[in-house]
Amino acid sequence: MFDISKSDYLVLKQAIQECRNFVLEKVNETAISPDARSARVNDLLHDLNQFAGEYKNVRDANYIQAGMLAMSVFRAKTGELSNVSMANCTQNGSGVLKETTNFYNGLMTRLKELFSEIENGFSRISHNDLRIPFKADGWHHDIRALNEHNQ
C-alpha cells in the first residue's frame, strides 16, 4: 500500500489508532514518534503529531471553559452571580462552549440587574420612599413574566 514496507505501514496504522483514541478521549495524552524507516512516512507521522498537539490545545481550552462555566453555575447556586471571564482561555475553544458562555454571561448580567432592581425596590419600600413610581417594565414585570412562564 502506497509502496511502503509492512513495518512502516503498521507504524502508521498504530499512529492513526493513537490519534483516534486521543480524539475520542480514550486517552488523555498522545505522542507520536517518527519511528518509521521511510522518510515520507516519518513526514506523515510528524504531521499527525503536530495535529494531535493542535487538538490538545483545543481540548485543554474546552476543559478550562467547561470548568469555569461549571464553577460559575455552582457559585450561582449559592447566590453569587458572577460572570465568567475567560477571554484568554477561549482562543482555541469550541464554538458551542463560547456560545454557551455568552448566553450564560448575558443571563447572569440580566439577573444581577434584576436583583439590583428588586433590592432597590425593597429599600424604597422599607424607607417609605414611593414618591417615584416603579417603572412599568421593572422587576415586578420580570417576576410576573417568570411566573407566567412557570405556569
Binding site: 480514550k26 486517552v27 488523555n28 495524552e29 485543554d60 476543559y63 478550562i64 467547561a66 470548568g67 469555569m68 464553577m71 471571564s85 475567560m86 484568554n88 482561555c89
Partner: peptide
C-alpha cells in the same frame, strides 16, 4: 486524575482553575 490547570483573572487578581478527569490505567 488527569489535571488541566490554567490561570484566570478574578476581580483583577490571578486565580487558578483546575479541571480533572479520569486517567487511563496505562497512563
Amino acid at each position: 486524575v488527569y489535571a488541566t490547570v490554567y490561570p484566570i483573572m478574578r476581580e483583577g487578581r490571578r486565580h487558578y482553575i483546575s479541571c480533572r478527569r479520569k486517567p487511563t490505567a496505562d497512563e
